[in-house]
Amino acid sequence: MKTIFSLINVVIAIAAGALVFLGYVFPDLLGGMRAILLQWAIILAAFALLVGILNLMQAHWRKVTTKQPKAVYSLVVLASLVATLLVTALSGPAGKWSLWIYNNLQVPIEISLLAVLAIVLAYAAARLMRRRMTWYTGMFLVTVLLVLLSTAPLYLIGEVSLLNSLHSLIVDILAVAGARGLLLGVALGTIAAGLRVLMGADRPYGG
């Protein structure tokens, strides 16, 4: 029975994937079908959100009930989740209290994490010299320093024309060329990953 279900999963996945892809190539012929399938995908994604939140609650509830270390944080997560759900259900997603939670709790917490991130990145750059001091690392760090120095006028010195020229060279030419090269590799990798799913070779959907 499991084999039959697996086979049905594979057939549905390949057929849906192929129809959506061909819908982009032949919009007049299969564009309507593509739109319907994408609408279904959006509905399924919304339902998956509910399942995902239940999964999140289950994981933290288990931590609390089995009294694992730092379970108190899981309790905070659960309490916050329930409180936010209740407030949003009562006042609406754009209601006064929902926005209050967003503006006064979520945004400040995320901004403070970003502040920590700046310190972590500076520390990581320093650690990189100790861990992997190669020519590439040296080039990476010198480039970072040059771009940092040339991004804003220097204290007591002001703008340095040489640094500005270097900034333009690095940001507008070298970085763009390098990024395009990396993105070409990423694009080819994405095509390969998509084709493996379309061929039924990769089956992350329980096939």
């Binding site: 972590v120 990145l121 990581a124 990189l128 861990r131 990476f140 090269g181 990423v186 080819l188 990798g189």
Partner: peptide, 20 residues
């Protein structure tokens, strides 16, 4: 993320290396 991983991960995968 690739630039950040290059600096911070012990073993970064750059460009298409991830897809391999």
């Amino acid at each position: 993320a690739q630039a950040v991983l290059y600096a911070s991960a012990q073993e970064p995968l750059i460009g298409e290396e991830l897809y391999a």
